[in-house]
Amino acid sequence: MKKKLIIILMIAIMGVVFAGCSKPEVLGTEKSDYSDVTIRFAQQYGMQYAPAYIMQRLGLLEKRLPGAKLEWTKFGGGSAMNEALISNQLDVAFMGIPPVLIAIDKGVDYRIACGICVPPAELIVRPDLGISSLKDIKPENKIAAPSIGSIQHIMLSMASKKILGDANAFDKNLIAMANPDAYTALRSGTEVVAHFASMPYIDMEINDGMKSILTADDAGGGASIVCVATKALNSNTKVYNELMAALGEAIELINKQDEEAVKIISETEKISIEAAKKYIAWPGTKYTTDLYRVDELAEFMYEAGYIKNKSKGFDSMTWEGAESAGK
């Protein structure tokens, strides 16, 4: 009996061990046929990822790298992306800055390639409680944000430091909820009185009569959603440069409200063409490859204890060629 058990245990362990083995991908060298190149992408949900999915839908990178195999997956948040990047399951991922800094802090060797968007972020509150600033939020009230260590969480923290002088003042009020759940909770009179929302939830909630009491500007300004690339991808200069160019092209199309790009946004987000145009031009929104607030976030997250090591500067977090938008 005991022998059997030990054997079963061993088999189970071997199973786990081998299931996790993954074949490292081969990135090809410079040439005109890229059929030996596979790039594995991951993006998340929401309009701030529009440059990624417009590049995907219009085949902007395929055009530049004929024959290359591009694989796309969607993730719910930065922590799963981090795990996938660390276990060499992804080459490129689009996410907020804080999870990137958490990973770099732990010694992961991927870096930020460029920005893709500075999304609006607003704290939306229920109108019936007379809340007009962070100061009015009581200990029993809950503030919903998409996840812990997300840009919304860090922005709330930055705003609370600015307004109340304490970065951790709302840590106990914070509740991690996906945008749709937070929307339900906010509308159904629960303890959730505030939602650090992104698009299109900001607009939907305001249309439902909720109030915006704080924007990214109150936290010192909007921060980029970034494109991160692994070391292996970055070392293939040609492929890397074409990726940057393709993202740049997608961003240009969004900024000039190209008909096809707007249509893709409206289909993906299930919103009208008018709404898509309105959100592209929403105050605080910028579609740009420039990076906003990488340094400030690194500094803040270090001071507030979210990461352990002081940042060694912009160049230690980004690949060569990444541009900071300055302050």
Binding site: I102, K106, G149
Partner: peptide
Amino acid sequence: VFGATGASGGLGWDIYMKRSYL
């Protein structure tokens, strides 16, 4: 999924937090 519901939160929240911070 819910996150912390009280001042501290239980083991599920703890696992979630630790995962977020790697």
